[in-house]
Write a protein that binds this DNA or RNA. Sequence first.
DNA 1: AACTTGCGCAAGCATATGCTTGCGTGTATA
DNA 2: TATACACGCAAGCATATGCTTGCGCAAGTT
Lengths: 111, 111
Amino acid sequence: METRRDVFQAISDPTRRDILATLAGEPQNVNALSEKFEMSRQAVSLHVKILWECDVIDITQVGRERICELKPKKLREVAKWLEQFREMWEDRFGQLDEVLANLKAEKRDEK
Amino acid sequence: METRRDVFQAISDPTRRDILATLAGEPQNVNALSEKFEMSRQAVSLHVKILWECDVIDITQVGRERICELKPKKLREVAKWLEQFREMWEDRFGQLDEVLANLKAEKRDEK
DNA sequence: AACTTGCGCAAGCATATGCTTGCGTGTATA
DNA sequence: TATACACGCAAGCATATGCTTGCGCAAGTT
């Protein structure tokens, strides 16, 4: 298999998504991050490494600490890819079913 | 490991992303789909199965064919998750670097 | 009835993933 | 200088992924 290191790979793991969400709050060092998860520091450290390889975070060495910082623009790539579908999920006709279901429910409640 | 079957898993593979994009055009049967990829029908069939398990597509049996249809609303989940970052990647201050770089470039060109 | 399609199942294989534990090294602090 | 910290590296392990090939079956065609 060929190891993929892109945004989609980065966000495919729930722990990594949580890490990214945490970093959206503020930059953190690896230890601070790992304290928030129920797994070993090493495991989190590995996820951080992957996130870095996927170019979704920056890492800055400060003394003995490594500060992880989100690169939000990378996530824009995902948003961009999603655009081709937006029209479809926002489609009014596609939502007709829901509307009808709601109408039915309302009528039922009136009785 | 625990097999994950969610939207993020669905879109983590490039072939699967291509399949979804294709289905955004119009519903297709498995054979039609597999002809668009440089891998065996079986490989594509497996991806289709995963997409179905991830609940990103519907499959309808019609005679001996299985029609695959996109469930665009599932992709909305990804868009929703991304929302927490949008503010950051659109942030004017975050783009200051770019602006400065552009200004520099302009000045350089003036000379 | 014989043949062709569309497609899933199953086995097999190399590599990736996710996690753990143990160890080492450079950086601060008492 | 001895000690505590932050953290990466490496090995080990179970399971997942991505792909292939061979087989078989049910739905259409001739």
